[in-house]
Design a protein around this nucleic acid. Structure first.
Lengths: 355, 355
DNA sequence: ATCGAATTCGGGTACGTACCCGCAATATAC
DNA sequence: GTATATTGCGGGTACGTACCCGAATTCGAT
């Protein structure tokens, strides 16, 4: 097992340029104190040798440690969706910890805009090198990221995007296409004309996402000239009783509903309703790999779940920050996640990687 | 940004044990030359401090480089399936190259058992530290891995498994469940009774995989009491003309075929046939994210593709070897991949990560 | 008790890079 | 001209671990 002799380091560069290692180092980190002439010469040699710094040695020698902040919703009793990104963050942290990178996680309450603001301010006080956030509250997120930009702190969005904010990257779903796929799954091989119900269960906050999904959903029907009548139900209170009350009304007003699309992870509420009311033969499609959703998938009440790899989103987001801050690499600005289709038959293999 | 002060290294262990760093090092790598008494003492301190070696420093100081061999089919004109694992391997290699790990890739010809043997022997001659292989030829793979076991070279299977060979790990699909899902997709919301055609296009080699898939496929139909009549077509020659000839015959002998399941990636041949013969309204489900398959997905001839993340399989397999050889970690022995469902609507987001 | 071998251990250097310190040479000021 | 900045650069140490070399200690045999 011979040693890799094709590798040239700073030492070789210094030798070829007739300078010391320190000078080469100055050029590499473009610090001051090198004449234009030698700088140019060294840069040429670097290019010629296609010098790749040894990150191991680099991070070992460097004492400046990097701190990343994570700003995501706290896992609530209502949904354990944000568990998955947490796992992704832990997996990433474990991987890059030896590189001197630390992660501080800040949680906000999805029912409380102020908690977002408070936590965001905490991050700014701390002074971190990079931020990963879920921009659940648009206005507050804009304010926060604007401040980040001013302070030259790179930030990455996951789960949903604010395109105008010049984030370092967005890692999450293409919501329009996701809704588009939802319509496909809901209507695939459906021949009889019937009504389709689109249900949005959320406080108004998340409406932005919802709109893109519904737009995609309707586009599919339109493009494929499917003439199902689409009715909508907007349910502002997320508890089961509210959902049941609303749905009861919708069903009393509309006969012939044979398919339901829920625009977010609260599809389990609708499933519970259908099961309680013994309504069979209604197709149901919704979002996210939650324990409760999987249960209804297994009982057959939910036909398909759509999922965007939340664990992977967070993992990649951390790695994007790492690559930018430590390696100085360019990263893909928009990384759409796969739009995964989960059924009763493949759900058992859709698990997150162990930390 | 304070330095991480919670970390204790060998130096601290040596200090607490009143020995030198070298002695601690001897204990850590359980080399000889340490008395039982000091060994015990040092081990206690290690446990107490929950010492985690700094891999960066470790790999930097260590001069012994690790060589991994990869033994997979060459990308052929018939299918570019094995492109994806190659990408995964490249991605893994880039990541762990600075740790002193090198990868040598050996290709064999899927139409030539001998080429497998030749390449396998080459690997054994070279003397490598770990092997990743696709056991396309059962007998030859058994012989090869038996030799690996004798030489104490760990090996990992991807794509398909030989459970009795005590591999370090298997990373690939659960074929039975994959076929099971295939049946679901093919029959979902199909109400009319009709015939289902199961097509297997391959030289006999890959039959083992095929059998598990078909078993799963039939199980689904049986468990769900679906009384579609299943007919089979075994096509030994993989060129289009043979496929067309065979299918023509099957169709002439059977009317009322409304759904076709192809047990591997050659579903594009069947799709081409259907398009040439202008046979619409036949559902078609098959395997793998190949360019040609995607085309037929987009034209609507193929309804669903099932895919097992070949890029990820290879990536993970390399990482499993890395974790075992470098970090000495235990790894999951069987890692089933997700069984992904690809449709026209979500295919554009099912791409492999850039290297 | 003496000697040699075996056992047990510490000093020290290397891995490739970061970065501090300080010296020399040159430029600028008076 | 001398004094003082400024610029350009090299020496050297440190990061945490691996591992070589040789020294100290122990032990058994005579």
């Amino acid at each position: 097992m011979e040693k890799d002799t094709t590798y040239f380091g700073v030492k070789e560069i210094a030798r070829r340029a007739n300078v010391s290692i320190a000078t080469v180092d100055r050029v590499i980190h473009n610090r001051t104190g090198v004449s234009e002439k030698t700088k140019k010469k060294i840069n040429e040699i670097i290019k010629e040798l296609d010098y790749q710094p040894n990150i191991l040695a680099s991070r070992l020698a460097s004492k400046n440690i990097i701190i990343l902040a994570v700003l995501i919703p706290r896992v609530s009793v209502e949904t354990d969706f944000w568990d998955a990104p947490l796992y992704g963050i832990q997996r990433a942290e474990k991987e890059i910890k030896p590189y001197g990178i630390q992660i501080r996680t800040f949680f906000f309450d999805l029912n409380d805009e102020n908690s977002f603001e408070t936590q965001a301010n905490l991050i700014l006080e701390k002074g971190v090198n990079g931020v990963l956030l879920s921009p659940s509250f648009i206005a507050q997120s804009i304010r926060f990221t604007e401040e980040c930009r001013r302070l030259k702190i790179p930030f990455v969005f996951i789960d949903s995007n604010i395109p105008e904010q010049h984030s370092l990257a967005y890692i999450g779903p293409h919501l329009f296409k996701s809704g588009y796929l939802g319509a496909k799954l809901l209507t695939y091989r459906k021949e009889k004309e019937s009504k389709i119900l689109v249900v949005n269960i959320s406080k108004e906050i998340e409406n932005y996402n919802y709109l893109q999904i519904e737009e995609g959903f309707r586009s599919y029907l339109q493009e494929n000239q499917l003439s199902f009548e689409v009715i909508r139900a907007d349910i502002k209170d997320t508890d089961y009783l509210s959902v049941a009350r609303n749905l009861t009304q919708v069903f009393s007003e509309n006969e012939n509903i044979e398919a339901i699309f829920v625009t977010n992870s609260r599809v389990f509420s609708v499933a519970t309703f259908l099961e309680n009311k013994h309504r069979k033969n209604i197709s149901l499609v919704g979002y996210d790999f939650l324990k409760e959703n999987i249960q209804h998938l297994n009982t057959g009440t939910i036909d398909f779940l759509i999922c965007h790899k939340p664990e992977e989103q967070a993992y990649r987001a951390i790695m994007v920050l790492y690559q930018t801050l430590v390696r100085g690499q360019q990263v893909e600005k928009t990384q759409y996640m796969p739009i995964d289709i989960i059924t009763k038959e493949n759900q058992e293999f859709y698990q997150i990687l162990p930390v």
